[in-house]
Amino acid sequence: MEVEYLVRVMFRFDKETVDKPITSQVILEQGVPINILSAHMNQRGGEILAEIDSRSAEKVIKAFREKGVTVDVRRLIEKDDELCVDCGGCVSICPMDALTLDEGRAVTLHEDQCNGVTCGLCVDACPQRALRLIG
């Protein structure tokens, strides 16, 4: 099942790629919007933090990589397994089934399902503060 949500991505540019109009090229070529959240650039390189629609994320990421840009798909929710007691307080909250109780009654975070910062509903539901937003 294809679910629509926003994927948060970090593009890293080096000396070579920083002064080329790569971002606008990709937007034009792929015909998809890229929502830029923050950008830090100078002559030596820089970073752009952006959100892309999940359905086009794969081809956008590929296009950037082909143009020599390093792409980090940020893990958006992090679960600290040392702190987690597998209670399940977060499971009923998650609209994406990204937090599930498995057969052995352990709670697992499926990062690929998580909507991350656009959701974040589970973070303050965890009594152990084992879930946090990163990036």
Binding site: V85, D86, C87, S92, G104
Partner: peptide
């Protein structure tokens, strides 16, 4: 409705 536990069955 999704049901979650607050006490840990695993523990």
């Amino acid at each position: 409705v999704k049901a979650g536990s607050l006490s840990s069955i695993r523990k």
